[in-house]
Design a binder for these strands. Structure first.
Lengths: 214, 214
DNA sequence: CGATAAATTCCACGGCCGTTGAAGTCAACA
DNA sequence: TGTTGACTTCAACGGCCGTGGAATTTATCG
């Protein structure tokens, strides 16, 4: 067989939009295309608003392939929600160091998660879907407490209560919702550095008490 | 005609579940029943998740009556989103008084809005629907800036920037989402008084600068 | 080469959705 | 009393949804 000819045909002319069924030759990358399209749709419209047909179309693929690779819509959602492994590491790294700058470092990595393309989609999807309906709220709750509070609590010494950590989390959540989900004017327009400078003291006070009153 | 007889029939025995069409005798309260059911559904499931058929069923009414009284689903949503007139008044009242307790009073009325049955449903519906999808976010944004920031700004003296007011708003939004929408453990379980005591200083510092460092 | 498994397409089902039109029944007013 | 208009029910339309099964083509492995 002639590999050179096959290459020319495959990269030059489109394969004339074949509509017949059957396995394609070469690596198709279909699985990843579906996941990427799913991330985008879930992030933009939440679980209910996203439709498998639209996801498939965006991935340039038949709807049946979603079922083939991922099973049900729920399974696809779970796959789209996977976060990079490095998140806990980055979080714990932010927790070590000068305790007087803890708030600053914490909001810095937090904003980083929302701006990193590897995690932003999943975060948007989680928040959008969890807030949309009563039923899905558990997932956000679990993730919030499991990922953040649990990681946070041991590093802060047992002195401060769970409530103060939760309030810091609520503040961060509010900032993320305003800046990245709703994109409300004043907060979305703020420079990242300005934003950190403005809200770091509040986070700091929640986590280490009212000591640093400079 | 016999008013007494009519009264007995109407209030005593059920009108034997008549399925025939036609106007009913007496005041039906249908319009209000629809609005109440709509508030509940929109609050619990957001705009997309709520269905006219379920709303009609919850109101014990035919779907066509929704159309008759309110028109389209959008129109019904608008009607369900109307907030009590007293909200701006309560807000401005909270803004006058001892400036050192501004944060405390502000979060107090804010929590009040979320706990008052007259406004809680509409707030839930707005947040749920606005966060669910890109497209609907404008409504929350408009309401946030129009109702809260605009009312707030003139009362705070021109010295502090828009950004700090917005950050206070973001913090309040985060608290409301955690406590009333997602109902995340630590914050939802908190006593109202405890909650106010814990987060009032943060709000206060955003609005009046880092002066009260007691 | 032959068999098995993977990747892909198409079509159809049942269900829920928002909307619409037609018709029935009663109150209110002239 | 007769007419008009408000209230109410029902049946249907077209559309999108998630899921499922059947058929087809190709790769892979024995």
């Amino acid at each position: 067989m002639n590999n050179a000819g096959w290459l020319v045909v495959s990269s030059g002319v489109e394969p004339e939009n074949r509509r017949t069924a059957g396995r394609r030759t070469g690596e198709s990358g279909t699985r990843d295309a579906i996941l990427a399209a799913a991330r985008e749709q879930f992030a933009g419209k939440g679980y209910d608003g996203a439709s498998l047909r639209v996801i498939a179309a965006a991935a340039g693929v038949d709807t049946g392939l979603i079922r083939h690779f991922y099973g049900s819509k729920d399974d696809l959602f779970d796959a789209a929600l996977e976060l990079p492994d490095e998140i806990p590491q980055r979080l714990t790294r932010a927790l070590t160091g000068d305790p007087d700058r803890l708030g600053e470092r914490l909001i810095d990595v937090y904003l980083g998660f929302w701006e990193d393309p590897a995690s932003a989609g999943a975060l948007l999807a989680i928040v959008r879907s969890a807030i949309a309906s009563d039923h899905a709220a558990d997932r956000l709750q679990a993730m919030l407490s499991a990922r953040f509070l649990a990681d946070l609590a041991p590093h802060l010494g047992g002195t401060i209560g769970q409530a103060r950590v939760a309030l810091a989390g609520a503040h961060l959540l509010g900032i993320a919702v305003a800046r990245y989900v709703v994109r409300a004017g004043p907060i979305a327009d703020l420079d990242r550095a300005e934003l950190i400078a403005l809200c770091a003291p509040a986070i700091q006070r929640y986590l280490t008490g009212p000591r640093p009153t400079s």
